[in-house]
Amino acid sequence: MTPPAKPAGTSGGFGQVVSKVPSRFLPVIATFVVFVATFGVGSARYEGFASGQVMANLFIDNAFLIVLAVGMTFVILTGGIDLSVGSVVALSTMIAAAALQAGWPAWLVVIVVLAAGSGLGLAMGWVIHRFGVQPFIVTLAGMFLARGLCFVISVESVSIKNPTFRDLATGSIELPGGVTITYGVVIALVVVIAAMYVLHLTRFGRTVYAVGGSESSARLMGLSTTRVKIGVYVISGFCSALGGLLFSLYMLSGYSLHAVGMELDAIAAVVVGGSLLSGGVGFVIGSVVGVLVLGTIQTLISFEGTLSSWWTKIVIGALLLAFIALQRIIVRKT
């Protein structure tokens, strides 16, 4: 039974360096392939599809969704879920529009909106952590609360006439090649870069992954899991509020029925972007590409003309299924 002791250094099967593409990158690569493929199909079929401006429009039309998906990625990485994001977007547009109408300065409005979103996130995170109620239920309540508060402010749509907001909304930045983008796109990209920095280069970010991988292990390792578990909901709330501000720039109005069901788009983008809903696996960049895939499908269907908009939903559903299946296969293999 006793195996002969091996001399140190020649450590048999241990010494192998694994040098294949790690399977955790596969879903993200798949997302990217899907994006290139859909965009390629569009370019092949329609003249003018493969232009820089169509690409830029993808970002312009989905800037708010990118921000939401970034926040959602944090939550999903810990194994949670945030159903409140769509309603928080609506609430943010509503607060912004109402406050601007009341004559508040733009900078104050921005601060108030961001604080409100983060505060709601903090409250939800606290309840989830402190009372052990499922995130699903707590954020569902948050979704109702935020949507209800919109109606408390106003049932009608409130348009935004503040010059600062108008300037920000209509202002455009010209890139080389005659392509223009909005300030919203810049903000979204800044958020993406900040999120990548936080997730990959800070202790908080790595703890997010650790909690998603195994919360009990993370706690045994002495990591501050409480801070992370509550923190991700604050981040998601902040991103929802910021997404709401971008959305209010995009629509130039505040309305209680804005962004209905947008939480599903955000979740779909994250899943299509290769994150596991059970937590621990995923990348912000994947979620961004996920948003772009959803956006491209929408653009494709609008270019097609004869294809009706409901195909978008069916295709997104099919994509979700495909990525869930892909994840299952990868999980089984390892």
């Binding site: 699903f136 779909a268 809903l277 059970s278 908009s309 295709v315 099919a318 979700l320 869930i324």
Partner: peptide, 19 residues
């Protein structure tokens, strides 16, 4: 996971109804 499995039909289902 049930929550993801039924999310597929939640998303695609409305599309099917509209179809």
């Amino acid at each position: 996971q049930p929550i993801i499995a039924t999310l597929v039909l939640m998303t695609a289902g409305r599309g099917i109804a509209m179809l």
